[in-house]
Design a protein around this nucleic acid. Structure first.
Lengths: 113, 113
DNA sequence: GATTTATATTCTTATATAAGAATATAAGAA
DNA sequence: TTCTTATATTCTTATATAAGAATATAAATC
């Protein structure tokens, strides 16, 4: 089998840097496709395709306003990522503590390096 | 062009569910490849390949112990993901607040629904 | 040295999909 | 209706890569 589908998984959906950019822009405010095209520098069809993926995993919602489609972030669906990575936070903080106390230890010993 | 490489990007590396599983197991303790094979139920070559990807993005380190290779989590490199998703946390919390106060509002109005 | 144990690599195949080009759809406006 | 504006879709192509099978490497033990 091949790679897993981005369309079925929030983790894969945000794996694409352009989609993360779009999400960042939508965090500021609701935006039309063309605004996103200008802000990201990507071409219109690509932006539409990325938005489709984001829609399918529930990270954005759309509403029509005349010819425009206004996209809005649906932040709730980022929670699984947050929840997954959050427990690891403790670990790099612990490592920082270890580093700092090792540093202190070194100073106490007169910095033998 | 095609899809971006998992091997060059932490976001893509954790996009694969089996790799997330491996990282979770390594969060508990340093483990050999075979331990990971048993714990994840994946086949040995697949686990080795996933570990290679995780090594290349710096999410794990290895040390040799006789024939075994002991893999250890390097949590620091998960920080970019945490840092990226963290600012969005505010947003779903805000929405929850909105929801709760809307609910309160509804109760105050006698629940018109 | 031969065998066993542990892990990595190579090769193949199927598939996902990002990007580009061209086109389609759809809603205003003239 | 025709034209313009805004967005979506379709089709093609190149490429990444996950999984499987087979094999290679390497260390330990007999």
């Amino acid at each position: 089998m091949a790679r897993s589908a981005t369309t079925s998984d929030v983790f894969n959906a945000v794996g694409e840097v352009q989609r993360r950019e779009i999400l960042e822009r939508l965090a500021e405010k609701e935006r039309s496709v063309n605004e996103l095209v200008e802000l990201t520098g990507a071409r219109q069809p690509q932006v539409s395709k990325h938005l489709k993926v984001l829609r399918e995993v529930g990270l954005v919602t759309v509403r029509a306003a005349a010819q425009q489609r206004l996209y809005k972030l649906n932040p709730q669906n980022l929670k699984p990522i947050h929840d997954w990575v959050k427990p690891f936070e403790r670990m790099w903080e612990d490592r920082l503590d270890e580093y700092l106390s090792a540093l202190q230890q070194g100073e106490a010993d007169g910095d033998k390096s």
